[in-house]
Nucleic acid binder design. Structure first.
Lengths: 337, 337
DNA sequence: TTGAAAGCGTTACCAC
DNA sequence: GTGGTAACGCTTTCAA
């Protein structure tokens, strides 16, 4: 194992100079810096993580708590984990993964042992027990998602309520007076924080604009399109109809199939908006207006906030809502009589 | 932050005694151990991770490299990540997640900086570049999956070839002379290591037992059941027919639907075996014979091997194949003329 | 059964 | 612009 001493010897300087040359925390002359870098290269030097943690009081590790429950939508969660890892790495941080029961026990443990510089919390539940832990620990913590009791917490998320309102507005603007919301699974409305927020936005704006709303939770097994089909039938039978879809890809496809089976065309006879989908809606058979949920956006911001809290210990906790963006693709039809 | 010194003071002993009491590496009298434990409780002491790494040359962290590519089947990969985390934690280890490009760069970095005690490799590709890296670093590394060039590597995996042979044997034993293998996606056969291994087993045993084999790669989009339906049609039209399914849940369901649509019954008119499925096949509409892929099995063993290599530095690298198990559920029908 | 003290490899302060 | 050196908090040998 090569140490900083060997690098220093090889470069003919002191170890402190090597340290400063590498961290850039003190100016080092061009010449010596180059010699040091050469030595580092030749010897394949990499600072010892443990020593660095101990001396520097910095671990360059973030904990990521993500229960990874079996009943969650794996692709979405994987996308958030990946986005977090990428964002963290870009700032020189590694991700320590806390899953399962560890979600709580692990948070306390890594905080108490100074294993991580900050904690990032994913897959936030409405009554998430990690909220209390975050408040009790002195390790900076950032939630991606918003628990019911978010006081004293730093949270980041798409503004789902606003997204819900935006979707209804677009449909109401087109003259629609009835909207069907094809929502998430029942369990998601109980165990996740965001589906209900979008629902609330949709409900509020619907009543404000005198739009009749039908809300349908889609089946627990995502491959069971019967619920979707039935809801589509009801709506299509009504004549004027518009859909907001806040669900997985399968639900989108089932809906589009139902519409096509009726000989109707999206954007001409029927309006469809995909709200807060984290997957690529451009691969759907028909172009669909979208209010995307971009994991990278939330996760980048989460990492940034974590770093801020590290530097500026006095940073006050607050909720950061990312404004939704509307991507039109021609799937809004004028209302029919 | 409470240190070992404070604990020692509170318990009226020296810090070395505290250390030994906690690690159990030296006998400590009942009395003093209790006093120490009390002090630990009261003060909420947790050893500093950095200091422990530096002094003990142990990090209690495993790196887990998992590319988490977007084109992979998220639920399966999530299951393996989770199973690894659980197994590691049970032995007192945390998981440091290396994804994406980091897969390679990260391995070198964490190895060189002594950030982890061992590296676990998931989602192994046939020509996986992590194989060479594993050979070049001195950090113990265990692959869950088998790259084409596995020499000098420690690998763990279900014996997919054997599973393929087992499936064919069961069908041949029932008198079938023609088998359709509904396989993974095209891309999986190129980028993953295991689909081709199962395929090989099926091919070898089919030719050995004079079984006519049709191999079908299922659609890239898992929700496109057309390929499955077409393959099922062809086979069902042939009269005597049997299926081995090595694919996601949707493919199973599409097949079962096709069979039902023909008025045929699994286990009576048609034989179906699900091979190496990592999801719960018991939720399928019809009971299906299964040769399951249990992530926990592989991951438990992988962690165990990593620990072995840590203790016993002379442990020789080899491939550990987990024998497949056959779970009968009555989905094998006698061959029809 | 217990204690004292020498490291472990950095960082960062204090000198020059 | 550079060097010496005291921490950092723990593990582990050596002594008793």
């Amino acid at each position: 194992m090569t140490t900083i001493h060997q690098v220093a010897a090889a470069a003919g300087v002191s170890i402190s100079t090597v340290s400063y040359a590498l961290s850039g925390k003190r100016p080092v002359s061009e010449k010596t810096r180059l010699r040091i870098e050469a030595a580092v290269q030749t010897l394949g030097y990499e600072p010892d993580a443990g020593a660095r943690m101990l001396a520097g009081r910095r671990t360059n590790i973030f904990a990521l708590t993500e229960p990874l429950r079996a009943d969650t939508h794996a692709p979405t969660h994987m996308a958030f984990v990946l986005a977090t890892a990428v964002a963290a790495r870009r700032s020189g941080y590694d991700i320590l993964l806390l899953t399962d029961e560890q979600a709580s026990e692990g948070m306390n443990r890594v905080a108490a042992s100074n294993l991580v510089d900050a904690i990032l919390v994913l897959d936030v539940a409405p009554d998430d027990e990690r909220a209390d832990i975050a408040r009790s620990v002195r390790t900076p913590t950032v939630f991606v998602g918003i628990p019911d009791d978010a006081h004293d917490l730093t949270c980041v998320d798409l503004d789902f309520e606003s997204a819900g309102r935006l979707a209804v507005d677009r449909l109401a603007d087109a003259g629609h007076t009835a909207v069907t919301l094809l929502g998430q699974t029942e369990v998601a409305y109980r165990k996740s924080n965001f589906p209900r927020r979008l629902l609330r936005g949709v409900q509020d704006r619907s009543s404000e604009r005198d739009v009749e709303l039908e809300w349908v939770a889609t089946g627990a097994t995502t491959t069971e399109p019967a619920t979707v089909r039935a809801a589509a039938e009801r709506a299509l039978a009504r004549g004027d109809c518009a859909f907001i879809v806040h669900a997985v890809g399968d639900v989108h496809e089932a809906l589009l199939e139902s519409i096509a089976a009726h000989g109707l065309t999206v954007g001409v006879d029927v309006s469809v908006i995909s709200a807060a989908a984290s997957f690529d809606t451009s691969t759907l058979p028909v172009p669909i207006d979208t209010i995307p949920l971009v994991p990278q956006q939330s996760c980048d911001l989460a990492v940034e906030l974590a770093l801020q809290q590290l530097e500026n210990a006095g940073a006050s906790a607050r909720i950061h809502l990312i404004p939704p963006e509307y991507h039109a693709a021609g799937s809004i039809a004028p209302a029919r009589e």
